Computed example of a mutant assay.
Amino acid sequence: MKRGAWAELAVTGREFHLKVTPGARRQALEQAGEGFRAHVTAAPEDGKANAAVAELLAQALGVAKSRLTLLRGATSRDKVFRLD
């Protein structure tokens, strides 16, 4: 996926619901119904997978990673990020 491929979804205040697969073989982000499915190669330890998901989502939206806030799911596969 190229940087900013989903730039039209980058609306301030929007929440993004993701189902995350940590420790995957590849990094990928895809739409799945009303949410997204993220595959990251990072291990689910010490917040590494959360940081990788934020980076992947920021790239897809074409925004800075610092504009994304993890609202729910710090230790879960189901996560909710908000774009500030």
Rank of each mutant, 00 (worst) to 15 (best):
G35C: 10
L18D: 10
L70C: 06
R3P: 02
V40R: 05
W6P: 04
Q27T: 15
A49E: 13
F16S: 03
G73I: 08
F36S: 05
V80P: 03
T41R: 14
R14W: 03
H39W: 15
R14A: 09
L18S: 11
E30C: 11
T41Q: 15
S66V: 05
H17A: 10
V63C: 10
A10K: 05
R37G: 05
R37T: 04
T21I: 15
A51P: 00
A5W: 08
L61K: 07
R37L: 07
A5Q: 13
R82H: 00
E30H: 12
E30F: 13
A7V: 00
T69K: 13
E34D: 09
R14F: 05
A10C: 10
Q27D: 15
G23K: 06
D78Y: 11
L9V: 08
Q31F: 13
V40M: 12
L56V: 11
G62F: 07
P44V: 14
L71A: 06
G35L: 01
G73A: 10
E30R: 15
T12W: 06
Q59L: 14
E34C: 05
G4D: 08
R72M: 02
P44C: 13
Q31C: 13
A58M: 01
W6M: 12
G47K: 03
R82K: 05
R72P: 00
D84I: 02
W6S: 10
F16V: 09
A32L: 08
A38S: 04
F16W: 04
D84L: 12
L70D: 09
G62E: 00
Q31V: 14
L56D: 12
G4W: 02
R3L: 07
P22M: 06
E8S: 15
V40N: 09
D46P: 01
A43M: 13
E55H: 14
K2I: 14
R37W: 01
T21F: 08
A5H: 10
G23C: 06
V40Y: 07
S76W: 02
K2W: 14
D46H: 06
L18Y: 01
L61N: 07
R3E: 08
A74S: 03
S66P: 00
F81R: 05
R3T: 03
A38N: 00
L71M: 14
A74Y: 00
Q31H: 10
F81A: 01
V53C: 07
F36C: 07
D46Y: 10
G73M: 00
G33H: 04
R82T: 06
L9I: 09
V20K: 03
P22S: 07
A32F: 02
Q27Y: 13
R82A: 02
L83T: 04
V40A: 11
K2P: 14
K2F: 14
A54F: 12
P44R: 13
F36H: 03
S66N: 01
R26A: 07
K48T: 12
L29V: 01
G62V: 06
T12Y: 07
L18V: 10
R37K: 08
R67P: 02
A52F: 06
R67S: 14
K2M: 13
A54T: 06
A54E: 12
